[in-house]
Design a protein around this nucleic acid. Structure first.
Lengths: 131, 131
DNA sequence: GAATACATACTCGGATACTCGATGTCCGAGTTTAATAGG
DNA sequence: CCTATTAAACTCGGACATCGAGTATCCGAGTATGTATTC
């Protein structure tokens, strides 16, 4: 029951992109260097973020990644869902009568966390950090 | 980022023990049968619950498992911590200046979930189910 | 000077390898209860 | 009867086996930019 390292990479990379805030894309090499990750692996993670519509890639020389949306809209939950998927953390596949009451409570609990992550934006961290 | 099946087994087994509420212990075989799990595997899970002080085992004939504490005190969080461990779901091992702000937010989010699980008791489910 | 060719700097995505935890199984050992046998 | 022995019904815990997701690397392919070459 842990978040993957990929999620951590994704969050930090997104934060870097938000902080950079330039129109010009940032290369994977530069992003990978600051996190001590191989470029190939990081690019795989960023591909997921791109498919989720959070960032976009520019190929060729001077290429790299840049944000697509307004930076104010990007929440923690967006990133996490892009990397970890959107399926529930708890799945009871037993054969009960109707729905599993245990599962219902677990989903309630998960919802509490998701709600917080939905309200928390990456840009808020960027502001705190720059001070 | 998923809860393990073991946690599901542990929750259901605890619920069964709470519902049974007898002084006499219930054998692993009976518990395993209702969840379609092997007895040896379930006993491994229950050993964790026993080490956490939630249940206790009685060996020998007529042996089995039974609750130790008052059933009203057992929360979802107790079970989950016993099985999944108490370490945080998100660990940033990068070398930032001081503490990682991203990690701080992730821990806040996790705390929301843990708080809910701490307030939710197994016995509440047992009551709903018996109606 | 314009067009062409070439080199360079990037990302993309498939294939592959490695590692580790989750999930189970097997089995010998220890423990309690019940049954049985001997005095 | 009472006691000792044996059988049966359990849990305990270590040692494996298996499997899949997470993590990571390698490399060929595609694409955009910059530079040199040719006419």
């Amino acid at each position: 029951m842990k978040f993957s390292k990929a999620t951590n990479y994704a969050l930090h990379t997104t934060l870097a992109l938000v902080s950079a805030s330039s129109v010009k894309p940032i290369g994977v090499q530069q992003l990978a260097k600051s996190q001590d990750v191989s470029t190939t692996y990081l690019s795989k993670i960023l591909t997921k973020l791109a498919k989720a519509g959070i960032i976009e890639s520019a190929s060729g020389a001077q290429g790299g990644y840049r944000l697509t949306r307004n930076k104010d809209e990007i929440t923690f939950l967006d990133i996490i869902h892009a990397i970890e998927g959107t399926s529930s953390m708890f799945e009871c596949d037993f054969v009960h009568g109707d729905e599993c009451l245990i599962q219902a409570e677990m989903k309630n609990a998960e919802q509490k966390m998701l709600q917080y992550l939905k309200e928390t934006k990456i840009v808020d961290i960027a502001h705190k950090q720059s001070t």
